[in-house]
Amino acid sequence: MDWLEFVVALLVFMASHAVPALSGIKGALVSRLGRGGYGAVFGVISLLLLWWVIAAAGRAPFVSIWDQQIWMRWLINLVMPLVMLLICLSVGAPNPLSFGGRAEGFDPARPGIAGVVRHPLLWALLIWSLVHMLVNGDLAHVILFGLFALYAAVGMAMIDGRLRRKWGADVWVTRASATSNLPFGGNWRSYRPGWSRPVIAIVIWAGLLHLHLPVIGVSPLP
């Protein structure tokens, strides 16, 4: 019973991402709310459920697997601004090869952020999950962030496979030829992002750093 809230929160969070797509609910809501409206509603619900599952992990019985070290806190504080930058450079950018991007304006020869890495949002989730698992070495958090990391890693291969089947192998290879699943494995040298998204990333990162203690209940500072 001590684990009940964590298990329920985790199952609800996972179901909220799987059920809409598998059941056809997503398509119905997109046609009703529009893609932007659905994205906004789904984003808010996802953030609230993410807060719940993280809070539930903190209330689960503490079973230590490894001890936290000070260098782990330094590492996560160095990495998280890069994670936020990757997110802000990705959302709405020309990249039909992964979710969060758009088809309009995409040039396979100069793929933009997709030339840095094909699935930037999933890489952001993967890095976020791994560094948070590192600094939270108890069983509940290892399960939580380990599942997020697994979801991100498997999701990259699943999206590639789905688009290859949808477009056909030749079209997929043409569109993905200058990209890579590994960071900086594609044509990233031609990428010239503007200043607005990095500035937004810094502002959001600073806000999250400030809100981490009152919202999550733990200071992220070393």
Rank of each mutant, 00 (worst) to 15 (best):
V218M: 01
A56P: 00
S219Y: 15
V7M: 09
P120M: 03
W52D: 00
M14N: 05
V154G: 06
V135L: 10
G217M: 00
A55D: 13
W71Y: 09
T174H: 13
S23R: 12
W3N: 02
A109T: 12
P111V: 03
L85D: 07
N136I: 07
M133H: 01
L49C: 00
M14K: 04
S46C: 03
S23T: 15
D2F: 05
I45A: 14
R59S: 12
G155D: 08
G115E: 05
W128Q: 05
F42I: 00
W172F: 15
G105H: 10
L208K: 01
L144D: 03
G34S: 12
S64P: 04
L48M: 13
L213D: 09
L147H: 05
V171Y: 11
Y191T: 05
P108R: 13
N95R: 09
P94V: 06
W52V: 00
S98A: 15
W195N: 01
I127E: 06
I143A: 12
G168Y: 02
V7D: 00
L208C: 09
L121Y: 07
I143M: 14
N77Q: 13
G37A: 06
G146N: 12
G217T: 03
F145L: 09
L4F: 08
L11Y: 12
V12I: 14
S190K: 02
L221D: 08
M156G: 11
M1W: 06
A18P: 04
G100E: 13
R32A: 15
V7L: 07
G146L: 10
F6Y: 08
G100W: 15
P111T: 02
M156K: 11
D160M: 11
L144W: 10
V91A: 00
G137M: 08
R110H: 14
G37L: 04
G92Y: 08
I113F: 14
F62N: 08
F99L: 15
L139G: 10
V91R: 07
P108C: 11
A57W: 03
E5K: 09
V142P: 06
G146Y: 07
S31K: 15
A176E: 02
W128G: 04
W172L: 03
F106C: 14
P81Q: 04
A21P: 00
R165P: 08
V154A: 13
V199A: 12
G155W: 03
W188Q: 11
V203Y: 04
A56L: 10
P198G: 04
A178G: 01
H132R: 03
P96V: 09
V131I: 10
A55E: 03
G137K: 07
I76K: 06
H119W: 05
S31P: 06
A55C: 02
R102I: 15
A9D: 06
A124R: 10
I25N: 14
W128T: 00
A206L: 14
